[in-house]
C-alpha cells in the first residue's frame, strides 16, 4: 500500500479553524476576553464616583470629548459582542442538537451551576446591558434625571447616577445584572485558560478559584455603587434636589 500520511491540511485556512469546534471555542474565549477588558475598564471609570462629582464628571466629559475614541470603542465592542454572542448561540444550538433524546433521569456530578447556565447568564447580561444603555446612555428609563449639567456646564453624570440609584427597584435590577455577570465570569475566566490550552496541574486549581473570586469581586465592586448610594455614602451634590 502506498503510504499516505494523515490528511495534510496545508489548505486549512484560518476560516476552517474558526469554524471548527475548537476554533469556535477559541473565538468565544477571545471575544470574551475583550469584553472582560471592557468590564474592567468600565469598572475603573465607574469607581471614580467615590471621588466625588468633580472627578466623575471630568472623567465622563473627557470620554465624550473624544468622539473618535468613544465611537471606535463602541463599535468595536459591538462587533466583539456580536461575535461572542453569535458564536456562542451557534455552539449552544449545536450542543442541543447533539442530544436529541434527553435523559429521563437527569443528573450532574461535578459541573458548577455557573457552568450549566452560561447561555442564560449571558443572555441576562445582554438584557441588562440594553437596559443599562437605555438608562444612562439614552436616558429612556427616567428622562427627568437625564440631561442635567453641573456648575461647569458639563453633563452631570454624577447626579444622574446618584438619582438613578436612589430607586431601590433600579438598584435591585443592577444587583441582579451584576450577579449574572459574576456567575458568567466565574466560569468564563477559568474556561479561557482551558480553551487556550493553559491547564497546568499545579496552576489550574488556583486559576479556577481565582476566576471564581474575580467574577464575584468585580460584580461586588460594581454593586458597591448603588449600594453606596442607597446607604447614603455617595450623596447628591449640595444644592441639587431630586
Amino acid at each position: 500500500m502506498e503510504a499516505r500520511p494523515i490528511e495534510r491540511t496545508s489548505s486549512a485556512s484560518l476560516c476552517r479553524l474558526l469554524c471548527s469546534s475548537i476554533g469556535s471555542k477559541a473565538l468565544v474565549a477571545l471575544t470574551g476576553l475583550a469584553l472582560f477588558g471592557f468590564v474592567l475598564g468600565h469598572l475603573a471609570g465607574n469607581l471614580q464616583i467615590f471621588a466625588g462629582q468633580e472627578t466623575f464628571n471630568a472623567y465622563a466629559h473627557w470620554i465624550k470629548s473624544k468622539p473618535a475614541l468613544l465611537w471606535g470603542t463602541r463599535l468595536g465592542l459591538l462587533a466583539v459582542l456580536a461575535v461572542h454572542l453569535g458564536v456562542s448561540v451557534r455552539l449552544a444550538r449545536r450542543n442541543r442538537a447533539a442530544r436529541p433524546v434527553p435523559y429521563a433521569f437527569q443528573n450532574t456530578v461535578q459541573a458548577t451551576s455557573a457552568s450549566l447556565t452560561m447561555v442564560w447568564s449571558g443572555l441576562a447580561i445582554l438584557a441588562f446591558v440594553i437596559y443599562h444603555l437605555l438608562h444612562f446612555t439614552v436616558g429612556a428609563v427616567s428622562p427627568a434625571e437625564f440631561g442635567r449639567t453641573d456648575p461647569l456646564g458639563r453633563p452631570d453624570a454624577y447626579t444622574m447616577v446618584v438619582l438613578g440609584f436612589r430607586h431601590p427597584a433600579i438598584a435591585l435590577i443592577y444587583a441582579i445584572g451584576m450577579f449574572c455577570l459574576a456567575m458568567h465570569l466565574s466560569h468564563a475566566i477559568q474556561s479561557v485558560f482551558q480553551t487556550f490550552g493553559l491547564n497546568h496541574p499545579r496552576c489550574m486549581p488556583l486559576v479556577r478559584r481565582a476566576g471564581f473570586a474575580a467574577g464575584f469581586l468585580i460584580a461586588a465592586a460594581y454593586v458597591s455603587i448603588p449600594a453606596a448610594v442607597l446607604a447614603g455614602i455617595v450623596t447628591l451634590p449640595p444644592g441639587v434636589s431630586p
Binding site: A12, I22, A26, G197
Partner: peptide, 15 residues
C-alpha cells in the same frame, strides 16, 4: 480534562 487543554493548544497552533 488537562488532555482537552493539550488538544486545544495543539489544534490552535496547527490551525
Amino acid at each position: 480534562v488537562r488532555t482537552i487543554a493539550v488538544m486545544n493548544r495543539d489544534t490552535l497552533r496547527a490551525g
